[in-house]
Design a protein around this nucleic acid. Structure first.
Lengths: 263, 263
DNA sequence: TGAATAGTGTCTATAAGACAATATCCC
DNA sequence: GGGATATTGTCTTATAGACACTATTCA
């Protein structure tokens, strides 16, 4: 194992300090190519809920390695590109999805996770409403929306399976079953205390739709009365006064996401 | 922005699939040096609670860049070393702390975060009991335990300040104030639903000590009765029957961490 | 005995689950 | 009207905060 002088980061947030004379001299003689470096990629788990289950966008690999298997949308990080920018670019260029909610998930770095060379993957998850993600998949060859099946409950964690429309397991490339598992776990955890679930719905939605989203993510049924009460009394949603239309039953009120007062 | 064929990871968990003939041929011709790559480091925020506040281990930088400032323990990731292994090695070799609870936190990748070259930092946080971390700091030159002050409440997030024993702010290197802020935020979030707080205490502890740890991490006072009830009824701790000794008041019962039944 | 903290019991307020009753749409 | 779902109201139960009271140690 190598161990040498540490070298990490400059202050962000505009507080970067000007290097003094000694530091300038050091930087001029610094050789960045002195040690072997891994490649760094981003992989994006773009997810939505549909028919009561979580779904994710998968891309069929047309090239080696793992040709023919299904993978998350991914790509290398440019040498002058931030990680967030790289993830947004991948989602925009590989799936035609600009302006999507994205959050960093975890960095996968097992030395043998890619057969070519050492490649780290900084994984992101993205939340998209179902209509938009369905259209994006239909518009691009080799891109599908796969149903996810978790064999574990709650936030225990573990890999997830991707299923095609016939319910057959789709072979996943690399460690992407683990990345998807981490995404589902994170999403379940976030849903309890964070308004992240609204990213999976259109701007106006009914309380039933919101509950369906929560149930799909959590993988279990929720109490209808409690769910309604908690989401309304916490002020997470606001009634718009508008109603559903063209439904074969009593139309429900339409709500919109309401940022709680502290944010 | 570059955009090229994705290349991410091989399946971990022992499910790696043998490459077929076409894939073997591809791998033999793959050139891993075709594109510029960033350096990758790990930085470890080793934390404990003491005198009612969170503290973190900091190392005084003796070399450029940011010489004289205070930094987290860090180091480059070896080309064949996993990220978890690198973090554990850094904590062991730079701070003399083997066998510590470590968890990946977030990956910091702003292009200008290090003045030398593009360096990503995969940040980890470590939880140590106060005695052990204090002894480790005393044993190594240039390593101190700094009190942390958060200017934000709850899980709002943001950078944190490190204070020396006189309460003066210590200048932090790179973006390490942000990394520490993320560590505090994560720890606060975890404490609500995860038994991670026990990592900050010796194996036997009183309920008061456990509550002190929670209050130091969360930065607010908790209700004594509710805290005791919730931690006991949830089965997170088990009474040992032993008692505190040599205290100038009624000795409290000593408890130990009890893994809940589902794990 | 007094100071200090541990530990117990009880009351109350709040939130969650269960369930019944009523309202409103389309057919 | 009948079927389906929305919406409201009430009862019950679990949990958290508040607070009073007793217990045990050392000085």
């Amino acid at each position: 194992m190598t161990d040498r002088k540490r070298t990490t980061g400059r202050r962000t947030r505009g507080k970067a300090t000007a290097p003094d004379a000694g530091e300038r001299a050091f930087l001029e003689t610094y050789d960045p190519g002195a040690f072997p470096r891994p490649s760094v990629a981003v992989d994006v788990a773009a997810m939505t809920t549909r028919d009561g289950d979580l779904h994710a966008l998968l891309v069929r690999r047309g090239e080696h390695p793992h040709r023919g298997r299904w993978a998350l949308a991914g790509g290398f990080v440019g040498i002058q590109e931030s990680l967030d920018d790289a993830a947004a670019r991948v989602l925009r260029t590989k799936a035609g999805l600009p302006g999507i909610f994205l959050e960093q998930l975890y960095t996968f770095g097992a030395p043998d996770r890619d057969p070519r060379t050492r490649i780290l993957s900084v994984a992101y998850y993205a939340l998209v409403d179902a209509d938009r993600l369905r259209k994006a998949c239909a518009a691009t060859e080799g891109v599908v929306l796969a149903r996810l099946r978790t064999s574990w409950k709650g936030e225990a964690g573990g890999p997830v399976e991707a299923l095609d429309p016939e319910g057959m397991a789709m072979p996943l490339a690399f460690d992407h079953a683990d990345i998807l598992g981490m995404a589902v776990k994170r999403l379940r955890g976030k849903l309890d205390y964070s308004p992240v679930g609204f990213q999976l719905l259109p701007p106006l939605f009914t309380l039933r739709q919101l509950q369906d989203v929560h149930e799909a993510v959590l993988g279990r049924r929720l109490n209808k009365d409690s769910f309604r009460r908690s989401v309304v009394t916490k002020g997470l949603v606001a009634a718009t006064g508008e109603m559903e239309r063209d439904v074969p039953y009593r139309p429900a009120g339409l709500y919109r996401y309401a940022m709680p007062e502290d944010a």
